[in-house]
Design a protein around this nucleic acid. Sequence first.
DNA 1: GGTGGGGTGTGATATATTTCACACCCTGCT
DNA 2: AGCAGGGTGTGAAATATATCACACCCCACC
Lengths: 235, 235
Amino acid sequence: MPAKTKRKVADAGCLLCNEGFCAVVSLSQSQISLLQNNSHEKWLARGEHLSHQGMPTSHIIYLRKGLVMEYYRDDSQRNRIIKIVKSGSYLGLHSLFSEGVNHYSYKALADLHVCLIEVEAFKNLVHTNNVFAYEILASVSRDSLSGHHRFLNINAKQTYGKVADVLLYFARIVFGNNTFELPLTRREMGSMIGITRESTAKALAKFQSEGFIVMEGNLLNIIMPDQLETISRTG
Amino acid sequence: MPAKTKRKVADAGCLLCNEGFCAVVSLSQSQISLLQNNSHEKWLARGEHLSHQGMPTSHIIYLRKGLVMEYYRDDSQRNRIIKIVKSGSYLGLHSLFSEGVNHYSYKALADLHVCLIEVEAFKNLVHTNNVFAYEILASVSRDSLSGHHRFLNINAKQTYGKVADVLLYFARIVFGNNTFELPLTRREMGSMIGITRESTAKALAKFQSEGFIVMEGNLLNIIMPDQLETISRTG
DNA sequence: GGTGGGGTGTGATATATTTCACACCCTGCT
DNA sequence: AGCAGGGTGTGAAATATATCACACCCCACC
């Protein structure tokens, strides 16, 4: 059991989250109270772990602020990064229905502000509020689709296509900007797409030499997104 | 719009499905009527298509009997098989929340008996019945997890491990038996795991020559599941 | 009976990717 | 300052896989 900074959510704390997640809008006053009484806020530093694959699921985590990587230790004991989670999302929703065990691990890629919700209270809400349940269902479903989609497309490609894919993923999905600070090491990027750190580095070097991207330290600037798009599609 | 054999479900038709899907148990009499009035049965022959990626989602399909492959045409116009669906499952649940468009295509691997449910009626049930919503949510969620799990593990492996994986998938998940009729061609099997038909054939030949499996025509018998298990983990 | 299409099995070659080796650059620590 | 650890960049060799080529089989169809 990790040490927790137990602290009651301030009044209206959940309401403040509204903008991030519309399901909360559907809650009655008493349901919001239930949520608040079974939640607590927490701040974590970059590099800290939020939860570990295989550990019992005690909380659903709502990511108020920060950036998190979701990863998985596979059969061959290699860590595979599954995706990057932005603020305004829940972590570990899929574990709600899987015998109370976490399927993935989560690690902070930046300083975090999270809200931990007792899993039983959360389930209770899903059971008693239709709209809430529907929104959660929609969220899980969309999530699952986009994940499958990404996996399918990624592993049909070869190195350059894969790396182009990851860069576009960062730019479009994670940061919404063609210029961003790389949140992962080469090895970690490789682990998202199933290639080695060397192959990743070589692809990046090639993209830079072709003028598609510019890297200065960890800052990456996509100069020609269309070229990357083409590479991502054709190979 | 494909030609449909419109036919009302017989009285208690949905109740007969109970064993296959427990969410239906939670429905009230009037909700069951709603389901029945918005469903119709259909029979399809092996090889027929049930729905196509990109087409509008008009129905949720409940597979009463038969075997279906779920596949996806990727960015490079190659068909990738995602999974094999057994009887007692819904097809296309994920499309409920995705702008009404099918994400995957479905093709019958055996003669089918299905129940087509109007998508709006289905959504209505999810909205108005908590237990039903919860069961659907759990189902989508588990589905998504096992899918991700399979993808992650498969694409971390190389040829022999992948092929071993597929064989164990057939034996354990699809047929529940170490002897079964191969439902896919070599090329199709390859498309589940991202390798060519030649590589698939060579791996099978190797497994046979090592005595792990025996093939007689399309009938496959796994003699040494433990060996395949080992290969799947280490190779 | 012949013919075309598609599935299958299997070698030889071509290609992509990993593995290995080494050098360089940080950063934190002593 | 010197050192260890970890990230990075990049060539050469080793390896895995795809591609190509060809032969065989089966089956539907003329």
